[in-house]
Amino acid sequence: MNYLLAYVFLNEFVIMLIKIVFLFKVGLFSCLIAFQAYSQSSGALHLSTGIQDFTTRDQGFSSMNYGGIRTASKAIFQLNKAHKTELFQFEFAYGNLKNRIGNSLNGMSIGLLNHTFYHRNKPLERKLHWGWSNQNVFHIRSHNGFSNYSLRYDYLTAFGPSARYLWPFQWEEQRFEWETIAHLQVLGFQIKSGYIGADPEGFSEENAATGNFLKSMKPFIIGRDWSMGLNSSLYWSLPSENSLGLRYGLSMMALNEGQPVSRFGSALELVLKVKLW
């Protein structure tokens, strides 16, 4: 009887040992795959801040343009892989804007812009890369002269083509890189304040949040609506493999569903590009 118990125990022990070894092998194999992938990629973080000359018009407020200088900041995470480069750009801008008769509004923009560019296994040669982009941006503005209906906003999610031109060069034994990125949004959806008030058409306090979201959505279609941007940056490579740069960016948007909204901005920013790995 004791012999039988010892046999069963030994058998269970061996099975457990086999399972542990198998799990160890799977874990090790996964780590190796991940390490291999990691070693083939590189990451960088771009931090930038500057000023933006911004003009906007919301027919729901006024037929006049509001303009002024806003502060603008961006944080971009860049992931370089063997055959593609991905950029995840968080952007924020805020400022007080005035029209020609002195009335003012406060405007704030928060956005997430993603680019994916496809290329051969030499991303740092002088080259044009094509890809696609996804823009998600929220604009809110508060009019300082109106007692009622003084708040309006719009939100856009759209997809479209994107292009990047890279030109690394040397000058006075220093390494520089010129980068221009352009995007044009083609198709997506928008949510805008209503004809008079802040709430979008279709919004109701009776509906659930999801219902309101779906009822407030309107298509974003290129031709009627526009959203595009162009950023050109000049980087100076430091010995630490980080870079300092200057970026000039243009952005424009026109959402013509309901009360037309249009905006145009040109920004100048200082950029610090930090190599992560």
Partner: peptide, 13 residues
């Protein structure tokens, strides 16, 4: 893009 401002932003009445 630089000329877009004229196109995107309508002039004030």
């Amino acid at each position: 893009c630089c000329s877009c401002e004229q196109w995107v932003m309508p002039k004030d009445p």
